[in-house]
Design a protein around this nucleic acid. Structure first.
Length: 270
DNA sequence: CGCCAGGGGAGCT
DNA sequence: AGCTCCCCTGGC
């Protein structure tokens, strides 16, 4: 068990920000997340966080996963004081962090995300893990499932994942899995590429367009310059940035600003 | 190049 | 019953 006081970290906001589909609210202030074979529970009261893992596992994995070495207050301090919209959005979602998630898992997650809602995306991912992942047991004695490797999905027929509720997105995932398992697409190479090159490479995958490629770059490669534009962000930009979003001002971390806007627009509705 | 239908079905009103 | 959903592909 690890106890930490962390600024600009709010697990509830991260859970609801739509970047991780394997995190959920268990009880009042307790959240669970599955990443890279590992299972974690986190409890947060105000600024104080309890990580239900060893100090070693926290230092070696979760600290990086939650991007806790990055100074988000710095990003927020750079916001134009005259930009009341962005200021408000950032204050509302100031505990958001861009998680450092697995590239392959992000490719699949955002292939599924297109024309889809968050509740169903979660279920699709859960179904895939349950059918093709490895089963493990957490410290509570409950079973959970890891995310299957590309090789595991590559042998499926193109519509094999329709059984996991993917609908027409099944062939996007299967063909991409084949492309990676077959060596046509090299994830290790993509990890070492610049934002622009990585995005161009991702756009070659079947089912990956502009928006999905940017989500993968932001959440799977931690390219904070990526600025995914979906219909909600588009509407927000139309309403508040008639002359375009000032990307130059936030060069290098536009994606962080995108997340504040996205979360604000998502939560403001309800 | 631009436009737009179609894709499957859950979840909300 | 109707509409929306963190779109992309392929045909025109």
């Amino acid at each position: 068990m690890v106890k930490k006081t962390i600024d600009n970290f709010n697990i509830s906001q991260i859970c609801d920000s739509g970047q991780c589909f394997r995190m959920r609210r268990r009880e009042n202030e307790i959240y669970s997340v599955i990443a890279s074979e590992k299972y974690l529970e986190i409890e947060q009261h105000g600024g104080e966080c309890l990580f239900y893992c060893s100090e070693e596992e926290y230092e070696d994995f979760w600290k990086t996963y939650f991007d806790l070495d990055e100074d988000y207050e710095f990003y927020i301090s750079k916001i134009n004081p005259n930009d009341t919209y962005l200021k408000e959005a950032a204050r509302f979602g100031r505990g958001i962090r861009i998680l450092r998630q697995d590239l392959w898992e992000m490719i699949v997650s955002f292939l599924i995300s297109q024309q889809n809602n968050i509740v169903r995306i979660r279920r699709c991912i859960h179904n895939i893990c349950e059918c093709y992942g490895e089963s493990k047991v957490n410290f509570q004695g409950e079973t959970y499932y890891t995310f299957p490797k590309p090789e595991k999905l590559a042998f499926l027929p193109e519509d094999g994942l329709k059984e996991c509720n993917l609908g027409y997105r099944s062939k996007y995932v299967v063909r991409t899995a084949r492309s990676i398992a077959g060596g046509e697409t090299d994830l290790e190479m993509i990890r070492r590429m610049s934002y622009k090159k990585a995005k161009a490479e991702l756009l070659r995958l079947f089912g990956v367009g502009e928006k999905v490629a940017d989500c993968i770059c932001l959440f799977g490669l931690h390219h904070l310059r990526a600025f995914p534009i979906d219909t909600h962000i588009m509407q927000a930009l139309d309403a508040h940035y008639k002359r375009g979003f000032p990307k130059r001002r936030y060069q290098g971390y536009e994606g962080v600003m995108q997340q504040y806007i996205f979360y604000w627009e998502l939560k403001r509705g309800n």
